[in-house]
Amino acid sequence: MTALLLIPLFLPFTAGPLAARAIDRLAPVAALWTLTIAATVLAGASVSALGALVLTGLLKLPVFATFGELVHPLPTPSEAFVLPAAAAATGALTVSAWTLLRWALRQIRALRTARRQADRSGTAGDLCVVDSPLPDAYALPGRPHRIVVTTGMLRSLAPAERQALFAHERAHNAGGHYRFLLAAELAAHCHPGLRRVRDAVRLAAERAADEAAATAVGDRRLTARAIARAALATHASPSARPDFASAATTGPVPLRVAALLSPPAQRPRMASWIALLLAACAAVSACAAATGVIAFHHEVEIAQGEARR
């Protein structure tokens, strides 16, 4: 039973490399859905497994065994394994709960600030212009959906490029992309192995909005140029924060630009295999967690004298 609970804890690490491939092979919207669902299932399975491990450990302690009305000792593999595993699981759950709470509070504060700022600044249609020299633009979910753009960003783009930017942000709002980002972010806080999947979800959301923008303005090259110019302007702005974690690998922006500059991809047959592998990964993880938790529940009932072996 306990061994079964370890599967959902290790499988998320295999999802990272798969997610990177899914971005290359799947159409952006398909990748967005596949990756987000896989991340959510994997996160749920790993949290359930951790929870079952914690309970196993607790019921080994006499105090909790009495509290849980156990009349027999809980049948588990050697205590030399179960107790450290339970302690580690408790630690992992506590740390994730703590970072998740801090992250959620920070997000709520940031969203409130963004909304307050949008309400105060000049609004025309769905556009809020923030008078700031720092080039920045984002889609602000809520009622009504808004797109927030700084004057610094407006001034670094040509008129046609501004249309591409607006189309991109409107695509985020129309597609409800913040829901995907939120789910992926929650998943990444549940299991460190899912951080790479989270990054892939973010890239998929941007790619989906890029493609929608290219269709809306009818020009892939123009959309690519708008993204590149905006990124370079942001990079050049003197007050931009230093990038301490400057990655050696190519970041998301050049990938997006390159994807727009190349002709619309003919999806190879590999695409369905990647989606299938991700689905299998999530399914195995969910089944292992469910079986493990059910087995654990059964063993508790045996220990309580309510069920027979």
Binding site: A114, D136, A224, A228, V253, P254
Partner: peptide, 27 residues
């Protein structure tokens, strides 16, 4: 990196900047 606000562009590394300029020129 950790916000649910969908920003138009993410931060660039210096490598990214070089690649972008090359892409723009080829474009």
């Amino acid at each position: 990196r950790e916000t649910v606000l969908a920003r138009f562009v993410a931060r660039l590394s210096s490598d990214d900047e070089r690649v972008l300029r090359e892409l723009l020129e080829s474009g």
